[in-house]
Computed example of a mutant assay.
Amino acid sequence: MPGDLLRGVLSRYAGSMLLTKFTHSCVRLEKEGHVLVIDPGTFSEVEEALEGAGTVLITHVHADHYDADRLVAALQASPDLAVHGPRQVIEELAPRVEDAALLHAVDADSEFAAGPFTVRTFGGQHALIHPLIPTIQNVGYVVDDVVFHPGDSFVVPHGLTVPTVLVPLHAPWSKMSEVIDFVIATRATRVYQIHDALLSETGFGVVEKQVSHFAGVYGTEYRHLDTRESVELPAA
């Protein structure tokens, strides 16, 4: 359903959340007039995703999740925009922004408020790409106990089952069996794909056929979201 129409519907239901997918791993969450954006990276429509945003969450420092130049421009244009991310991200941004108080370094196993959103963090480390490539910090975010964005990781949140999970569908650090195992392990009600910019139309067909099948076997609905497509997420 188009985002504008869904916004009108959601305005009648307190607590419901609107999720809009942008290219690759960027998603925009809207609730009660507030906007939270996760991972506006170089493959994504950063300016569009960040329009009216009050909070940005960055999972890790890789450019496909974190476009430093365009994020700095957004911070300069929106002086109240707050950014939460791993220390490496915050230390890189701090010299380039006027008000470093709006930058917040986060670790795994923490919780904070972002407007009307409650955010919990999980994980801590990027998935292994190769033993000769050092790992970096990666923080996954659970928002309102409703939706989980793992960044570049297959860590499953401990202590809760999140009904909506964003699954990294294809990456240099993963294989299809790991994607399927992650979906099964989350026990989510529904999953939507992220981290998909490197897939061709043929690749989508191959990977999504298997992920959708095995998700269904374990009671999880897999659904593909096109760029700019929006869905309503019920309150937990």
Rank of each mutant, 00 (worst) to 15 (best):
L5G: 05
L5W: 04
L6T: 14
L6N: 09
R12P: 03
L18I: 13
K21G: 07
K21Q: 12
F22N: 04
F22R: 02
S25W: 05
S25R: 10
L29H: 04
H34Q: 15
V35W: 03
P40A: 00
G41L: 09
S44E: 05
V61G: 06
D69Q: 10
L71R: 11
H84L: 05
P86S: 15
R87I: 02
Q88M: 05
I90C: 12
I90D: 10
E92P: 00
L93K: 03
R96M: 14
L102C: 04
L103V: 03
H104V: 02
A105M: 00
A113F: 02
T118A: 09
R120W: 07
T121S: 07
F122K: 01
G124Y: 13
G124V: 13
H126I: 14
P131F: 04
L132I: 00
G140C: 07
D145V: 06
D145A: 10
H149D: 13
L169N: 02
H170P: 01
S174Y: 02
V179F: 06
I180Y: 02
I180L: 04
V183N: 05
V191G: 15
L198S: 02
L199F: 08
S200N: 08
F204R: 13
V206F: 09
K209L: 13
G216M: 14
V217D: 08
R223M: 01
D226Y: 04
R228A: 07
V231A: 12
A235N: 05
A236W: 05
